[in-house]
Design a protein around this nucleic acid. Sequence first.
DNA 1: CATCACCGAGAACGAATGGAGAACGGGAGG
DNA 2: CCTCCCGTTCTCCATTCGTTCTCGGTGATG
Lengths: 199, 199
Amino acid sequence: MSAPLTRRQQAVYEFLVTHREEFPHPPSLDELAAAMGLSSRGSLHKHVRALVQAALVEPMEQRRRGIRLTAREQAGLPLLGRIAAGRPIEAIPDARAVEVPDFLRGRGRCYVLDVRGDSMRDEGILDGDLVVIEARSHARNGEIVVALIDGAEATLKRIEQRPGEVILHPANPAFEPLRLRPEQVAVQGVVTGLMRACR
Amino acid sequence: MSAPLTRRQQAVYEFLVTHREEFPHPPSLDELAAAMGLSSRGSLHKHVRALVQAALVEPMEQRRRGIRLTAREQAGLPLLGRIAAGRPIEAIPDARAVEVPDFLRGRGRCYVLDVRGDSMRDEGILDGDLVVIEARSHARNGEIVVALIDGAEATLKRIEQRPGEVILHPANPAFEPLRLRPEQVAVQGVVTGLMRACR
DNA sequence: CATCACCGAGAACGAATGGAGAACGGGAGG
DNA sequence: CCTCCCGTTCTCCATTCGTTCTCGGTGATG
């Protein structure tokens, strides 16, 4: 590759990735600039040019069809790691992409986790399943969430939020529900889909 | 591939896709222009020509009312029907396509079924899940199969083939294993993958 | 302080785009 | 034959938008 991205170039790229769903069409320079709070098309164009250079964005030679990410990024969602009840998410070194059908994806930024353990067995989530996670920090009661407990352990549980208390329900009689104070629990995302390859 | 679509061409195409049901017949250029708020047939025709070029719309050589979408190449697999233990597969009239990642597909011809009922609950297959089936007539022991019993009822079960006997194991204590003679059981396919959208 | 990388505003240019409308031609129906 | 409908092609025009420029500001570094 060529030169590494500067901070702002990175920001533009991340904006494109996370907001790709929100643009009905690929945005023009003006639209993107407005969305990012810039008022100069020219400035933004400089960043986009760098992204084109880095092969992250399709070059648009004088064409007016908007700013598109290169095809590679469209294909799949990143497999970020393994999640096992009671341990931090174990990152997978080379985060390969996993093909995920649209109807399993959430609205916002999504990623995929590999489930370890049987704590959600009764919800039909088994060891080795891939869950699709929509990254958000709030959940509705009854959703299955990736929760970070005390900033250390990550777990997959059905959430119930009450005044002054958060209950994380496993789906396996062998495990107990966790009753926690709200400040102990940080929601990292909610499950929007599940995939299992049967061998 | 030719040049990618411009924004307006994209919009015309999307309009055609989303409103295809609303036109009893393929629309004329005038109708389509009016529906999209254009007052010039010629302008619209330019866009349509681009879509023909992109093989998204059938070319209409001088024919009237001729704007029709090309038969989409479906990347997905057909959703053939619902399967509920103890009944024939209930075919879905308009077999829509379901997007299925490669790693959930088997080697041969595949299709998708919508699971009804909880007879495989303990295998993590719940009511409403979509299972990917590889069509074949033989299974290995331990695979989850679509089995046709006595030529009438279809069911999803884990198969165990013994000399002179076939046992179909449900995965729910509320159901009993079925012990059948081999000639009663016709394997129609085996489960190669599973998908669930969590709402 | 001098230098440099980075960032943003804004002006200016020119090509691509999108729309209006006129005109041609062919088929259908009177 | 005339008339309508409709696909097609054409020209003309305004606007949009990608591109390139200059200029000023900021922060890090020597």
